[in-house]
C-alpha cells in the first residue's frame, strides 16, 4: 500500500497520497434506506438530477396550489366563514393534474433504474431487493401525498385565518387527510406497478394516465346509467373500479365526508368493503412489486 510521502517544501506542499483505506464508521442498511428514500423523494420533484426535470412536477404543483390560494384570498377578502371548496372533494376536482403528476413521476422512481441497469448496482449492496422496492414505493407515496395534501392544507390554514369554526373545519380537514393518505397509497401502488413493468417512460406515462382516467370515466358513466335505472347495487359495485371513487367511498361513509361521485356507499357495510378493497389493492400491489424486484437481482 502506498504511503504519504514528501516533506514540506518551500512554496507549497505536494502530497502523493495514494490510496487511503477507509477506517471510518460504516452505517447499517437503515441509513442506506433513509438516504435512498430522501433521494427518491427529491427526484420525484425533479431535484437532484438534470435541471429540466424540475419543470413538469413544479408546474403541476403550482397548478394544484394556486386555485386553493385563490379561494383562500377570496374567503379572507369577502370575510366568508365557510370555505368555498370542500377538503374532501378537492382532489377529485383536480383529478387530471394529480393523474398527470403520478403518471409522469412514477417512472422516475421505478423505470429509471431498471432501464439503465443501475438496479444491479443497488442490489449488489447490503440493501435487500425487498427493502429497495418498499423504499422506492415510500418515496413515491410521500411525494404524491405532499402533492395532494399541500393545497388542502392551504385551504385549511386559510379557513382558520378567516375565523371559520375551528372544530368543524379541523374535523373535516383530518377526515380529508386520511382520505388523501389512502388515495396516495393506492395511486403510488398502481403507478409503481405500471412503471416498473413497462420501463419505457413514454409508455408508462400513457398507460397510467389512460388506466386512471378511463377507469374513472367508466365508473362515472356506469353510475350515471344505473342511477337512472334505479339499480343502486350495480352503481356501488362499479365504484370499486377506480381509485378515486374507491377512496371517495371510504371517505364518505367512514369519515363523514362529502362525495364527488354519484353513488357513494351509504351503509357501513359498503364503506368497510370499499376500505377493504383499497387496503387489499395496496397490499397486493406491494407484494407484486417486491416479487418483481426480487427477480431482477438475477438479471
Amino acid at each position: 500500500m502506498a504511503l504519504p510521502t514528501e516533506a514540506p517544501r518551500p512554496g507549497g506542499v505536494i502530497h502523493d497520497i495514494g490510496y487511503r483505506p477507509y477506517t471510518g464508521p460504516r452505517l447499517d442498511t437503515d441509513a442506506a434506506a433513509r438516504s435512498l428514500f430522501v433521494t427518491g423523494l427529491l427526484n420525484a420533484y425533479g431535484i437532484g438530477r438534470s435541471g429540466r426535470a424540475k419543470g413538469l412536477p413544479m408546474t403541476l404543483l403550482a397548478l394544484m396550489v394556486v386555485p386553493a390560494a385563490i379561494m383562500v384570498a377570496v374567503m379572507v377578502t369577502l370575510r366568508l366563514t365557510e370555505p368555498l371548496l370542500n377538503y374532501g372533494t378537492y382532489p377529485v376536482t383536480l383529478m387530471l393534474i394529480i393523474v398527470i403528476f403520478v403518471a409522469a413521476q412514477a417512472p422516475v422512481l421505478f423505470s429509471r433504474d431498471l432501464r439503465s441497469g443501475a438496479i444491479s448496482l443497488y442490489l449488489a449492496r447490503p440493501l435487500s431487493s425487498t427493502a429497495y422496492a418498499l423504499v422506492r414505493w415510500a418515496s413515491l407515496f410521500v411525494a404524491i401525498l405532499l402533492f395532494i395534501a399541500l393545497p388542502v392544507i392551504v385551504l385549511y390554514v386559510g379557513a382558520l385565518t378567516a375565523e371559520a369554526d375551528i372544530a368543524e373545519q379541523s374535523r373535516d380537514f383530518f377526515a380529508a387527510v386520511v382520505g388523501i393518505v389512502l388515495l396516495s397509497a393506492v395511486l403510488a401502488t398502481l403507478s409503481g406497478l405500471v412503471a416498473s413493468h413497462t420501463r419505457r417512460r413514454g409508455l408508462a406515462v400513457g398507460v397510467t394516465i389512460i388506466a386512471l382516467l378511463v377507469s374513472t370515466g367508466v365508473v362515472t358513466a356506469v353510475q350515471a346509467i344505473t342511477a337512472e335505472a334505479g339499480n343502486e347495487t350495480a352503481g356501488l359495485l362499479a365504484g370499486l373500479f377506480s381509485p378515486f371513487s374507491l377512496v371517495d367511498g371510504v371517505q364518505v361513509e367512514l369519515l363523514g365526508g362529502q362525495s364527488s361521485f354519484q353513488v357513494p356507499p351509504d351503509t357501513t357495510g359498503w364503506g368497510l368493503l370499499y376500505l377493504a378493497v383499497s387496503l387489499a389493492l395496496v397490499a397486493g400491489g406491494l407484494w407484486l412489486l417486491v416479487r418483481y424486484y426480487r427477480k431482477q437481482a438475477g438479471r
Binding site: Y22, L27, T29, T39, G48, S116, G117, L121, R125
Partner: peptide, 24 residues
Amino acid sequence: HDCLPPDVRAIDFVVHMARMSGLP
C-alpha cells in the same frame, strides 16, 4: 452490462452509491 444512468453526474452517482453501501 450497462448500469450507469445517463442523466446523472459521475460524482453524484458515486457519492450516492457510497452512501448506499453504508458510508456517512
